[in-house]
Write a protein that binds this DNA or RNA. Structure first.
Lengths: 214, 214, 214, 214
DNA sequence: TATGAATGAGACTTCATTCAT
DNA sequence: AATGAATGAAGTCTCATTCAT
C-alpha cells in the first residue's frame, strides 16, 4: 500500500484471471477444438508458455473456465431472496432472474452446451465438470418444485425437472440463434408458468379433490 | 458376389455418399473443428485429396452434410398422414414421430445445434444452411398451430412456435446428455400436450366463452 | 463449309490453342512453379486430364508455350523489310520494331527471363528451349552488326552483340517494373544509337582513317 | 571443442540467420514458388515449425531475405572511396566494383529480378521490398551522374539513369545465362564508358561549345 | 478426342506442448 | 512467476499425374 507496486510485477493471480477471461470468450464462441492456445495467448497478451505455467494443459484450462464461469453465474443468479411471495410469483421471479443472467453472460452456457453435445472418444474434463455443475442446478430446481408441490411423486418430479431444464436450454439456444429479437426474460417467465400449471395438475392428480380453476 | 467389382472403378455418386456418410458421423460427434479431413478420409476409405474432388473445401463438405441430413430427416418425419384424428392426438402423434426420428438419427440435430451455438467471426456455411432448414421446420410448426387454433393472434403464435421448438431442442439436449434413461418419445408427447393446453388457453382468451375443463 | 460444324464438336487443334493461350498468360505472370495445371485448366475451360491428352507433362506444356510464343513474336518482329535505309536508321527502326512487339506481347520474354534466371537441379525443358531461340536472335543481331560494320573483329563483335542483347533485356525489365511510364520504343532507339556509335568507334579503331563526327 | 554446446541451446539470433542463409540460397536459385519451407528446413536443420517462430509466413521470410541481402550487398559495394579520380575513371571503377559484388553474391539480384518479373494478383511483399531498395540504388546513380554532369537536364538524367540500371540488369542476366564465359567486370566497365560518353554528349548539347573529340 | 474420378506426395501453416533460462 | 525458442504431429488444401471409359 505504501509502495505502489510497480505495475507489471509478476502477479500470478492476475495473470490467471486474464488467461481465464480470454479463454471464456474464445471457447464460448468456438467450442473446445476451436479454442487454440495461440488464440488465447494472443487475446490475453501472455505467451503460450505462460499459460502452461498456470494450467497443466488445454483440458485443464477449459475445465477451469467452466468451474469459474459456473461460480460467477451462480452468484449472479442466487442473490435475490428465494423465499418470498406466492409460489407462482416466486417461480417466475426466479426464471426472470436466470434469464437475465444468461443474457448478460451467455458464454458459460453456450460453451457448456457445446461441450455437452460433443461425443468424443476421450471426453474432455470440461464436459464432465459442466455436467456436474449442471446437475447441481438440476437438483436445486427439483428441490424447489418439491417444496412448492409436496404431493408430486418421484417420477413426476423427475420428469418435470427434466422438462424445466430442457425448456431453459432450448429457449437459450433460441435466443442465441435469433439474437435480441427474442425476449428471453418473457419466455422464461412463460416457461415458469407452464411448468407451474403442469406441476399443479400433476399434483392434483396425485392427491385428489380440488375443482377446476387454479 | 457374382460381379467381383474390379477394385477402384470410378463411381462419383457412390463416393460422394460414402464421404457424406463418414462426415455426418464424425461431425455429429465432434463438431466443426473436431472434424478433420484425415478422419473423414480414414472412415470412408478414400484419400483426402479425393474428398476435395467432390467438395470445394471443409466448409462446403459440412454444409452438404447438413443439407443431405435435413432432407433425410424430413422424409423420415413426414411419412405419416398428418390430417387424421383430434387435434391433441394429432399433435402428440407428430411429436412422438419426431422424437423417434431424433432417437434414430441424432447426428443431424446434434451437429446442427453445435453449429448454431458457435459464434465465430466467419460463420461456416453449414451454420447458415442449418438455420435455414430449421426455419422451414419452424414455419411448418407455426402453420400446424394456426390450423388447429385459428383464433391465435400473431404474437401469441410466434411465441408459442418459439416455445415449441425450444422445448424440442432442450429435450433433445437432455437426452444426449443423460443417455437412454431419458424417454424422448414420452417427453415429446408431454411437450406437445403442454403446448396444446397453452394454445387452447391463449385461444380461449382471444375469443371468449368456454368454461373450465378441456 | 456446307454443314456449319456444330460448335464444340471435339476439335483437337482448337483445344490445343486454348490450352497454350491460357498457359502463356499464367506462366508469363507467375513463372514455372507458379503455373499449376489446375489454374491452366480453369482459365481455358478444359479439364486437367485433357491437358495431359495434348501435352506429355507440365514441362512439355511450358516448352511448347515457349516455342509457340517465340514463333509468334518472330513473325511480329520480322515483317518490315530489313534492307532499306542508312545503317543508323535501319538499326533504330529495327529496335523500335522490337520494342513495339515486346510492349504488345511481353509474356514471352517475361516468362523466358524468369526461366533463364532459375537455376534448378533438373532444368525445365522450357528453359533450354528459351535459351536456344534466344541464341537464334543473338546470331541474327551479330549478323546484322557484321553486315553494317564489316571491320569489326570477332571479339569486339561478340562483346557488342552481348551488350546489345543485354540492353534489350534490361530495358524490358525496366518497363515491366515501372509500367507505362517507361517509353520502351524511345529507349530501344537510344540503345540502338549507342550501340551504333560504339560499333563505329570500334570499327574505326580496327581500320584507321575516318575523321571526327559521324 | 572446449565448450561442447549441449545440443539445442535456444539461440534465436543465430537460428534466424541460419534460416535466412538457407533461404537466400534456395530462393536465389528457384524463385518464390520454387522455395518450399520444407527445403529451407532441410537446408538449415531447423524444423519447419521453427521457421514459423521466426517469420510470420513464407512471404515474410522472403521479404526478410531481400532486406538482409540488400544490406549485405550494399556494404560490399560501398566500401571503396567514391570521391577520387577523373570522372570516367571513377565511373568505371564503381562499375567494376558492382560487377565484382554481383559475381560474388548473385543470389540477391537473381531473386530480386525473378520477383520483379512476376505479376501475380497478390504481390509478394518481397517484390515490393526489392523494388524499394532498387529505387535507392537508382537514386544513388542519378546523384552520381548529376554530380559529374551538372548540365544534364532532368529528363535526360532520368533516361540516362534508366539506361544505366537497365544495362546492369541485362548484363547480369547475360552472365547468369552464359556462365563464366562472360567477363562481367569488363562488360560493366564498357557500360560505364558508354554511359559516360552519352552523358558527355547530352551535356554538351545542353550547354553548347566544345568541338569534336572526346 | 476427351474427361470424371482418383491418388500419393507434398505444399503451407497451426497445433499442443516442452524445456532451459 | 514467466518466457523465448523449439519441436513433432497434425491441420487444410493443392500438386502433377494416371486411368478407365
Amino acid at each position: 500500500m505504501t509502495q505502489a507496486p510497480r505495475r507489471k510485477r509478476a502477479n500470478g493471480v492476475e495473470s490467471r484471471q486474464r488467461i481465464l477471461d480470454a479463454t471464456v470468450e474464445i471457447a464460448g464462441e468456438r467450442g473446445y477444438d476451436g479454442t487454440s492456445i495461440a488464440a488465447v495467448s494472443a487475446k490475453c497478451g501472455l505467451p503460450a508458455s505462460s499459460i502452461y505455467w498456470h494450467f497443466k494443459d488445454k483440458d485443464d484450462l477449459i475445465a477451469a473456465v467452466i468451474e469459474r464461469s459456473f461460480e460467477t453465474w451462480l452468484t449472479a443468479v442466487e442473490l435475490p431472496g428465494e423465499g418470498a411471495g406466492a409460489p407462482l410469483e416466486r417461480m417466475t421471479a426466479m426464471a426472470a432472474n436466470i434469464a437475465k443472467s444468461l443474457v448478460d453472460a451467455p458464454d458459460f452456457l453456450r460453451l457448456g452446451l457445446m461441450l455437452a453435445l460433443e461425443r468424443r472418444p476421450t471426453e474432455p474434463r470440461g464436459r464432465t465438470v459442466f455436467l456436474q455443475v449442471r446437475d447441481i442446478s438440476r437438483r436445486r430446481i427439483a428441490e424447489l418444485l418439491q417444496g412448492l408441490f409436496p404431493d408430486l411423486d418421484a417420477p413426476d418430479l423427475a420428469t418435470l425437472t427434466t422438462y424445466t431444464v430442457a425448456g431453459a436450454d432450448g429457449l437459450f439456444v433460441q435466443r442465441e440463434v435469433a439474437g435480441d429479437d427474442v425476449d428471453l426474460v418473457a419466455l422464461f417467465e412463460m416457461h415458469a408458468r407452464m411448468v407451474y400449471e403442469a406441476a399443479a395438475r400433476l399434483s392434483r392428480a396425485a392427491s385428489p379433490a380440488a375443482p377446476c380453476g387454479d
